[in-house]
Design a protein around this nucleic acid. Structure first.
Lengths: 315, 315
DNA sequence: TTGTACGCGTTATCAA
DNA sequence: TTGATAACGCGTACAA
């Protein structure tokens, strides 16, 4: 491996001068610069990023904690993070979570150990409070509304769209409303916001028997359909946390030759487009881009972005 | 920042001993080990990964070049890479390509500069020959059959499944077969394999007018449907490079109240499952896991994995 | 078993 | 405008 010292020795200049040429710094005469550059080219020398990182104290990469890349939330938010990172010269280190507290703590430790310059939690299981002590090692960003907690955050303002969605349901006179949530509302902001919007629109909490948690995939939706049918709950409207999931619900009804209740999804996915059901577009790409700017220290604070309720009535 | 030297000074031992304790090496007496560990705990010291990387000459991360994470091919292959990487203690650095030669060369340069220990091209635009010189800086892995070229590779053996798929079409007496390919077969192995299988089964090349390239998304499928209809080509079977894409084709026909031709997709996606059309499962997760083992140097050579043709006739 | 001292390759400081 | 040298923080021959 050829090093900066080889270039220095062969060019007859100091490593300091070679370093200046490499980094396009001032205070190098044109002649010296040209000569050093010619030696660099001749030796086909490139600097070692590990040494550069250590010397500069920066890794130029950002850790991103994800649950499941196949899920549209993560796919979209990642796409936003990636393109913003590329533009800023950063690399993205993908970290999988699986809602495992130990793993998440390990990633915080990696931040402390300077494995990356900043950390984005697109999802997390540990309480935000546990992240706070790590901010002294670099920016820690979450992707939901952190409330009063002082931590950098980029997220979709889902509340207003949820309210629009339930208003739509109310206008359509739906009475028995099924709710599919990703996780226990006590633990997940998404679920809590859904419940809150429901309460605001209908004046009361959703019935527990009409609320299903742990809904993440098409198969979960299908199982939810079976649940509603076999219990004889007979919902006339089902609000799912994803178009794919809503589609799964509908498929159960179709497979059993039952009339499909009105469905609503989220994330503006292909499956929902095919069914022509209403959805909510959370603009997760923009959320990802904002999160990255926070993670590289180019911004600070809380960024709540708007989401859009789409009826897709044109389909 | 507290360093190994602080631990050494305060514990009254040498940095070498502290290093041995940190890395659980032999030749440290139990008493000394316990005492040093107590000082480590007390100071809440953790080693700096950048310094460790430089000293060891390894970064413990693998670069993965991707086109589009939302696409099932990349989502699945990435899931396989990620879980194998996690198991082996490596981090995954996601790199986007967009079929830009300059970007791909930049990633090879990053390998040379020790930004990562190995590089996986889940897709690439530059010729494989251009990668060969970089193998001296670390493993370079491609995710398709490289033919005679001597480079590490993990990929799905698509040919046999393509042949099964076309045999199925032949048995069904389809005569006018539309073919949707991701890219020009001259540039893409996928396309070339599809054409080859077609030729082997039907004894002749597909008609150019029935072959569409640049097919990647649902929207492309929809456009392909329009193409077939407006040209009056009237295909009785359409073989698409993805279930979503096949679904797009079908949707065009439905939207225009035309009888939908027989469809076949790939990647075993939700949309194809809904339609109950045949598909091919390429097992990209396994491909990803194999690619990672190559990228960390735990294996060498070419790994062609089997794919499965699924009729989904049960639906 | 322990400690000294050097190497890893670069950037940055300061004197010249 | 240049160059010598000290960081950066850790691992590890080699000596003791």
């Amino acid at each position: 491996m050829t090093t900066i010292r080889d270039v220095a020795r062969i060019s007859g200049h100091s490593v300091a001068t070679v370093s200046r040429v490499l980094n396009h710094k001032k205070y190098v005469s044109p002649e010296v610069r040209a000569h050093v550059q010619s030696v660099i080219d001749e030796l086909d020398y490139v600097p070692n990023d590990m040494a550069r990182d250590l010397s500069r104290g920066k890794t130029m990469n950002i850790g991103v904690v994800c649950l499941n890349l196949a899920h549209p939330y993560y796919a979209d938010i990642n796409a936003g993070i990636m393109s913003a990172a590329f533009a800023a010269g950063y690399n993205v280190v993908l970290l999988q979570s699986k809602y495992d507290n130990e793993q998440e703590r390990k990633y915080l430790e990696q931040l402390r150990r300077k494995a990356f310059d900043g950390l984005i939690f697109t999802t997390h299981n540990i309480p935000v409070e546990e992240m706070l002590p790590y901010r002294k090692y670099g920016p820690v960003v979450v992707c939901h509304d952190p409330g009063d907690i002082d931590i950098d955050a980029a997220y979709s303002e889902r509340g207003p769209s949820y309210i629009k969605a339930f208003m739509w349901a109310k206008r359509h006179q739906f009475k028995r409303i099924g709710l599919l949530l990703p996780r226990d509302p006590a633990l997940s902001a998404t679920g809590a916001e859904t419940i809150a919007a429901y309460k605001q629109v209908f004046g009361h909490k959703p019935a527990p028997s009409y609320t299903r948690i742990g809904s993440m995939t098409y198969a979960d939706g299908y199982a939810a359909g079976e649940y509603f049918v076999t219990r004889g709950l007979n919902p006339d409207f089902i609000f799912a946390n994803g178009d794919d999931i809503a589609t799964g619900v509908g498929q159960y009804y179709k497979d059993h030759h039952l009339p499909v209740p009105a469905l609503m999804g989220q994330d503006n996915q292909l499956s929902g487009q095919l069914l022509g059901i209403p959805t909510i577009d959370h603009h997760y790409r923009d959320v990802g881009a904002a999160a990255l700017r926070l993670a590289i220290g180019a911004a600070h604070g809380k960024y709540g972005l708007h989401s859009d309720f789409l009826t897709r009535s044109g389909n």
